[in-house]
Design a protein around this nucleic acid. Structure first.
Lengths: 345, 345
DNA sequence: CTGAAAGCGCTTACAG
DNA sequence: CTGAAAGCGCTTACAG
């Protein structure tokens, strides 16, 4: 008891080591180690005493020393080229949430689209003995500008293109688009248009394909830019034509949807009474501030991050994981832009 | 040469250690270590040979082992309660940019406003022997829900409230507001109103105070919420009154400014011809998409992050750092909402 | 100019 | 039930 107080200050640099705990408890460091780790066999009394004293002196095991032995650093790296963070932040939140209970911390490395910077960060992670790397990005059909194959540590891809033998998590954009269009149909809409982003995006083609499947025909698909201004322009184009006007618009993302809603309002067309609008991404800052707030497809990126985190953990622990692409379902978030009814999920 | 190839596979687990390099080069591990670290004295020939072979076999020093000796992990933690990332991402980018060249990696920990989660993350960081912790948040007048004093590692605060003896970086909101209002004055505006957020925010009071100082009177200050809808409402209130209308509005953030601009347009009031508008935050997604795009005050959070990073590094290396609050200047980003003229900076 | 030895803080067979 | 010893991968005095 009295002796423990003497050692509270710890050795040099103020850090308390297992030696201090052992000395204070009057046992060897091996016994102290086993007591704290619930391994080995010893009297309950000894184990409890060591643990109590460790708590009293504020002992915190040095993860560096531990990692040196165990070959596990309880550290992973998250690599992203999405500097703006629109997609990376929810993914990061999911990873962190899944791993914090396992004592795993996450290095975040934003590499823009700079291969040299990417290599620097990968090298730094590897030297720090990360247990694995999760690569994430801003589009499903592009790889990060770094080579992550043959790395000696497991790699998982989330919301970015992976390699054929890796495990890759992505949103099921076709299913998400289906959700949106079927919802519009269920609201009684029959003339549904689709205003979306650049056709060279894989997800744009996926979403457009699903749109066509649901409406059972060619429909009206307008490819453009990921911008509010494009939503405006597209509405102007449609309403300047002679043909019958749509009673619903499925937009490729929330920014386009916001532009479309604003353009409709400025034309005196009511949303959702005259025209229903659905967005994609469920980006709160955009969807929530639109008048009226947008019903939108959420890609569940946090859940995607969580699964990527649990997978990298499994790989790091040597548990078997089936390689391949895993599509995660999207969810429709109902606000006011399609009418008041709530989904019957 | 031939021998090095034999060792490429490394020891168990495929990792190549300094033993492999030493063996391949035919020297002792001490010599290998000194050769690689440019320390000690030896023939240039030996040093070069060791370095060449290390490169050939793909040797990567184990930072865990290194850290155990040097008491430096080349790792820092970034703690934030800003889950949305609006403020944290630029800060993080600045930190990372400043430290990557020094071989330092960053653990990102989002703790929401949960003290227990905060403690868990702090404990994890401390066990991993971080060289320091940077605390950041979403407002200048609130502390994170964790106690970071008496930590045995240096702590720096950036865009969140620190402790009296710590070093804290924050934006100079008064100077930023002055920049905005002086700009409006320079554009010939004389009746400048101020629509802003909740009065209990320190930065709201700072900005309002600077506004009053520049216009030299009480002015029109309307406190409200950080939302587009509030910008709308405030404009409606002003324009429903009998008195003379403002010819400029300085808004407390970009969302309010966007709402105000939309409300003005809907009233047939032209921006910037009839009324100039300035926002605050320079949040690209809002400021850039407003019609017309917003002139806005940028808090230079990336620079703030960079300085926080360099400071924590200095502290970690034992260099002396003056404690106290450091206010960093804001910058006015000119777009189209005040007129076409560009700043004469 | 080069190497043997001690040690960073811990864990884990192996003895007793 | 408990402890001495070896070792994880490196660095750094200290000898030679």
């Amino acid at each position: 008891m009295g002796r423990s107080a003497v050692n509270v200050a710890g050795g040099k640099r103020g850090r308390i080591t297992i030696h201090d705990v052992a000395a204070a408890a009057g046992v060897s460091i091996s016994t102290a180690s086993k007591a704290l780790n619930e391994t080995g066999r010893m009297s309950v009394e000894t184990r409890e005493r060591v643990k109590r004293i460790a708590g009293e002196v504020g002992f915190r095991p040095n993860a560096l020393a531990r990692g040196l032995l165990s070959k596990r650093s309880f550290t992973i790296g998250l690599l992203t080229n999405d500097t703006y963070g629109r997609f990376t932040l929810p993914v990061m939140a999911g990873i962190s949430e899944a791993l914090v209970d396992h004592g795993v911390s996450v290095f975040l490395c934003a590499i823009e689209d700079d291969p040299a910077l990417g290599q620097t960060h990968v090298d730094a992670m590897l030297e720090k003995q990360v247990d694995g790397i999760i690569a994430t990005g801003k589009r499903l059909d592009r790889q990060l500008p770094v080579d992550l194959s043959n790395l000696h540590v497991p790699v998982v891809y989330a919301f970015t293109e992976g390699t054929p033998t890796s495990v890759t998590f992505r949103s099921d954009d076709a299913q998400g688009a289906r959700l949106a269009v079927e919802w519009l149909v269920k609201m009684g809409r029959r003339r549904i248009a689709h205003i979306t982003g650049p056709e060279d995006f894989f997800s744009v083609r996926e979403r457009a394909g699903a749109y066509r499947n649901v409406i059972g025909g060619e429909g009206v698909v307008m490819f453009g830019r990921w911008a509010e201004a494009w939503g405006h322009e597209a509405v102007a184009q449609i309403w300047s034509r002679q043909d019958e006007k749509p009673d619903a618009i499925f937009c490729g993302n929330d920014q386009i949807a916001r532009g479309a809603v604003d353009a409709l309002r400025e034309r005196g067309i009511r949303v959702p009474e005259d025209v229903s609008v659905v967005g994609f991404d469920n980006w709160e800052i955009v969807a929530g501030q639109t008048r009226p707030p947008l019903t939108s497809v959420d890609m569940e990126l946090k859940e995607l991050g969580r699964q990527a985190g649990l997978t990298i953990l499994a790989l790091a622990e040597g548990r078997p994981v089936e390689p391949g692409v895993r599509k995660l379902p999207c969810r429709l978030v109902v606000r006011q832009s399609c009418g008041a009814q709530s989904p019957r999920r």
